[in-house]
Amino acid sequence: MREESFYDHLCNDLIPFWNNMKDEEHGGFYGYADDHGVADKNSMKGAILNSRILWFYSASYKLLKNEGLLRMADHAYNFLVNYFFDHRYGGIFWSVNADGSVLDDVKHTYNLAFSVYALSVYYQVSGRKDALNLAYTLYRTIEEKCRDEKGYLEAFNRDFTPVFNDKLSENGVLADRTMNTLLHVLESYTELYRADGFSNVGKSIREILQIFKTKIYNPQRKICEVFFDKEYNSIINLESYGHDIETSWLIDRACDVLRDEKCHEEMLPIINGLAAEAYINGIDPQSHAMYNECENGVISRKKIWWVQAEAVIGFYNAYQKNPNHTEYMYISQQIWDYINKNVIDTVTGEWIEDIEPDNTVKPNQALVHAWKCPYHNGRMCIEMINRLRQTN
């Protein structure tokens, strides 16, 4: 695999596209752009999109050392602090209007976690203590208001009284706990620990890893269960290929940042098991891209943009851990080839969200919306550049 191909895509496609989403009038970034990349300047702005953009520019600056990228991160940071942070009850609002006025004041653990994630990386590149302090404020909010004695809960009103988790429940179920939220709390705490090494954060990471080991991971099927009730009973028979391969490498990353060999050894069966199962059952033999998911034995053969990005990193990580398994390296390359041929929009350079099983594209798919951001594809580029540099 060529480092240059990821570098070119990051620098010549993704960064220029997202530069054009900057809102010079109200701050932050436009919350919606159509399939031609034309922004709706009056669209609402989601905190998940804004925090992921803050992460994207911070992480891109960390790699490329281009001062313009840091200024874009500053722009995203200022909007996050001034409009999304709730100074009365704490936490982060779900969304605001184009001008920054509050639209949806729901608090969600997933949402708070992504702000911790972005702020932690922004602090690493900017050195701004106010960003680190805000990351810790949100960390304490999650630990004090968004969990019980068994783990992390999901959705809350503005004052942190619980509400139904409709924002992160799918497939016809309403979940009290989700693997997805837990995974990104883990990811955010990993970056916070990398930034400052606070022992309480390390303790929280270890607790989350134990929840994955004892409650989330199914060792018989070598998958992560996805949706749960409060007692961690799985409430749907669902295998999410993208989440599983993402979990494999993010658990590995957490163990690396902890620098805890015993923890790493304990989690290795999960890291390797998830990658092996995703490879065996999650790959389309015709296109060599990754399927979406499998519910009750029925495979969704759509190719989802973020799933392909996570597969490139996850399988390459599996190869790095198991160099004798060259099939992981080859499938990582084949998925990247598929992305270049089918997923990257040839006009704008951003990624098309959904590809049909026959590799056709339904029209009018937005290139930017509350969940469509430069996080998965930008992170794939940055991860692969760093990994390939280390091996060359």
Rank of each mutant, 00 (worst) to 15 (best):
E265R: 15
E266W: 06
E266P: 05
M267A: 13
L268C: 08
P269A: 03
I270H: 07
I271F: 10
I271A: 08
N272V: 07
G273Y: 08
G273R: 08
G273I: 06
G273W: 08
L274P: 05
L274R: 01
A275G: 10
A276V: 11
E277D: 11
A278G: 12
Y279M: 09
I280Y: 02
N281R: 14
N281P: 02
I283M: 06
P285W: 07
H288K: 13
A289V: 07
A289N: 03
E295F: 12
E295K: 15
N296W: 00
S300K: 14
R301M: 15
R301E: 15
R301Q: 15
K302V: 12
K302H: 15
K302T: 14
I304M: 09
W305R: 01
W306Y: 07
V307C: 07
Q308M: 12
A309C: 14
E310Q: 11
V312N: 00
G314M: 08
F315P: 02
Y316N: 08
Y316S: 01
N317A: 12
Y319V: 02
Y319F: 15
Q320M: 14
K321I: 07
K321E: 10
N324H: 09
T326C: 03
T326V: 13
E327A: 05
Y328A: 01
Y328N: 01
M329L: 14
I331F: 03
S332W: 04
S332D: 03
Y338C: 06
Y338V: 08
Y338G: 02
N340W: 00
K341P: 00
N342D: 04
I344E: 06
V347S: 12
G349E: 08
E350F: 07
E350L: 10
W351V: 01
W351N: 03
E353F: 11
D354A: 13
D354M: 13
I355Y: 14
I355A: 11
I355D: 10
E356S: 14
P357E: 14
D358A: 13
T360N: 11
V361N: 08
V361Q: 06
V361T: 14
P363Y: 09
Q365S: 09
Q365E: 13
Q365N: 12
H369E: 15
H369W: 04
H369F: 04
A370G: 12
C373W: 00
